[in-house]
Amino acid sequence: MTEAFAFATDIFHTLADNKVVLTASLIALVLVIKIYIVSLINKKSKNKRVKINMVNNAVTVCILIGIFNIWSVEFQKFAISIAAFIVAIVIATREFIQCFIGFLYILSSRPFRVGDWIQVGECYGEVHSTDWAKLTLLEVDIDSYEYTGKTLYLPNSKLITSSIKNLNFLKRYAMHHFTITRDESVNPFVFIDELQEKAQEYCADFRDVAIRYNQLIESRLDVHIAGPEPHIQVATSDIGATQVIFTIFCPTERALEIEQNLTSDFMRFWFTQKALVKEDK
């Protein structure tokens, strides 16, 4: 008797440890019970169809609950593995996800269009094209307003983390600033009026267009900007040198030409005045 009990116990433990056998046994047992209950319904019940349907649903639920209880540890490990896999995928594709989000940002907010001049972080250029992954810029030297011949490929993720400045109005007209620094031996106020006349002379041929374009920019941005009259200011550097600061609102392609002309005039006035200072001494 003891040996039979021990044998039955071993079989039970074997079945309990072997989850596949236990699952099959559970399904077989539930199906046998289902067949028995259905046969009783067929013999004694009138409304057979509804009751049999209820039994079938109950059997299905019992099987699912039983399987879940038997394999709960494995299901938990599987869920953790799936979660870890999804996290790994997200981390691995984070840059691509950010690029796609940046692309959606471009589409929704429209901060620029193809052909606009923009600044993204420290990069300047004309927008050549956009896609879901990158922004393509034709690099522009912001000091000379000329194309460098380089092409910049910026991931769209940079559009989320960096500020975007639309510089489109610089494509036609620029508020051009430049500074000439000399020693303190000459007082620039002696010839500042003549230099101002020269600046107005160089800007005379486009003055009317500059006024209209200046007003157009102000109306679009709803702010007041300097110009279109040229402005010259005298200051000193932190080491006491004389600085003459020029602000010229002019066509972009004329900016360097006007800068060179005014620099030439300044040097001529400066050296002439310096020669007069030497003669007086």
Rank of each mutant, 00 (worst) to 15 (best):
K44E: 05
C62E: 03
I52V: 12
A58R: 11
V32S: 11
A84D: 05
F100W: 12
A83P: 00
N56A: 04
S39K: 15
I80M: 04
F68L: 09
L31K: 15
I52G: 00
I101Y: 06
L40C: 10
I86L: 07
L29H: 08
I97S: 10
G66A: 03
W71R: 04
I52N: 03
V90H: 08
I63C: 02
I33G: 10
K77W: 08
I52D: 05
A58Q: 09
Q98S: 14
C99Y: 05
I82V: 10
R94Y: 13
I80T: 01
I63Q: 01
I89M: 15
E95F: 13
K46L: 06
I52K: 09
F103S: 06
I89H: 01
K51Y: 06
F96G: 08
K48M: 02
I86H: 03
I89F: 03
K44H: 11
A88S: 10
V55A: 02
V90P: 05
V55Y: 00
I67A: 00
N53T: 12
T93V: 07
A79M: 02
A58E: 06
V61Q: 05
N57K: 14
Q98F: 14
W71I: 03
M54C: 12
A92P: 08
Q76E: 12
F68T: 15
I86G: 02
V30I: 15
F78N: 08
I33R: 12
F75E: 02
Y36D: 02
M54R: 14
S45H: 15
A58K: 12
S81L: 11
Q76H: 13
L40H: 09
V90E: 10
I41L: 10
N53R: 13
K46N: 12
V38Y: 04
R94F: 15
I35L: 15
K51P: 01
I35T: 14
C62V: 13
K48H: 00
V61N: 03
K51E: 07
V90N: 07
I82F: 02
A83D: 03
I80W: 03
K51N: 03
K46G: 10
V61K: 05
A58I: 14
F85I: 02
F103E: 04
I101L: 09
I101S: 07
Y36P: 00
A88W: 01
I37L: 07
G66I: 05
I80A: 04
L31Q: 10
K46S: 12
T93P: 00
L29N: 12
F100T: 06
I80E: 04
L40K: 15
V50L: 15
I33H: 08
N57P: 09
I89Q: 06
I97T: 11
S45F: 09
K46Y: 10
L31N: 11
I89V: 09
S39A: 13
I70D: 02
V61G: 03
S81D: 11
I35Y: 12
K48A: 00
K51D: 02
F100K: 14
I65G: 00
L64D: 05
I86E: 01
I91L: 10
A28R: 08
V38L: 06
A83W: 01
I70A: 00
K51A: 06
T60P: 07
I65M: 08
I91Q: 05
R94T: 12
V30C: 08
T60D: 08
I82R: 00
V50G: 07
I82A: 03
S45Y: 11
